[in-house]
């Protein structure tokens, strides 16, 4: 399994004695080549689940295994390194760095890993080319359309050859065409052996997933396996 989640719990205390159960005893496994979507209404705990699974937020209870490593049993520095080598993130807001160009944005994770090389740069160029952004390589994010920005974010997520891709509402800001394109690339990643955890409230996306989990009030309330996939 590329990602294994056991009994995750995350509760927020928002006021006196008021507790919000963002994630409440969730377990999940995602293997190589598997695309799993978690859908549900806003505020059901999807993003919290994704942040915990991606090693960005400590759970109150439960375990997250990335490959063989239990993410919350290792030091934050090691966890940072595990994250940058094995995980890619795509967010609804893209979060591109506005003052550097597309190629530099795609390459920016290599700073965290100190892994820049000519071959890595070539891979960045290949990804940019693959995502039909070659003519935009010197452009700044502000000069791109939203669909192009999300493709740049996807290329950035894939530059370090992660084994798991976490996508948080990746099509939330996109029109249908661009949403299809982005989903196509995410599916390609899974088809190439990557594991994908995709959270969304868009039921259409679920149809692209091998497995679709419904979430409500921090719990999984339904689990559909797509036989087509």
């Amino acid at each position: 399994m590329e990602l294994r989640i056991n009994g995750l719990k995350k509760y927020y205390r928002t006021g006196k004695e008021k507790e919000v159960k963002a994630v409440d005893g969730v377990s999940l496994e995602i293997g190589k080549g598997e695309l799993v979507s978690v859908n549900g209404p806003s505020g059901c705990g999807k993003t919290t689940l994704l942040l915990i699974s991606g090693g960005l937020m400590n759970p109150d209870h439960g375990e997250v295994f990335l490959g063989e490593k239990n993410l919350y049993r290792i030091s934050p520095d090691v966890r940072d390194r595990e994250r940058v080598t094995k995980v890619g993130f795509v967010f609804q807001q893209f979060y591109l760095v506005p003052y550097i160009n597309i190629l530099e944005n795609v390459l920016i994770p290599t700073i965290g890993l100190n892994s820049y090389s000519a071959s890595v740069e070539q891979r960045a160029r290949d990804l940019i080319d693959h995502f039909n952004l070659s003519d935009r390589i010197d452009h700044k994010p502000g000069e791109l359309s939203t669909g192009e920005r999300q493709r740049v974010a996807l290329a950035r997520a894939l530059i370090n050859r992660p084994s798991v891709l976490f996508a948080d509402e990746p099509t939330g800001n996109l029109d249908d065409y661009n949403a299809e394109v982005v989903l196509k690339y995410i599916s390609e990643f899974a088809a190439d052996g990557g594991a994908v955890l995709l959270v969304t409230h868009d039921k259409r996306i679920s149809r692209q997933a091998h497995r679709s989990v419904r979430m409500k009030d921090g719990r999984f309330v339904g689990d559909d396996t797509n036989p087509v996939k």
Binding site: D77, D80, R83, F89, Y95, I108, P109, R156
Partner: peptide, 12 residues
């Protein structure tokens, strides 16, 4: 947000 994403993608 830039800091957030840099930290998320592996900046210590």
């Amino acid at each position: 947000h830039e800091i957030g994403i840099l930290r998320a993608i592996g900046f210590s």
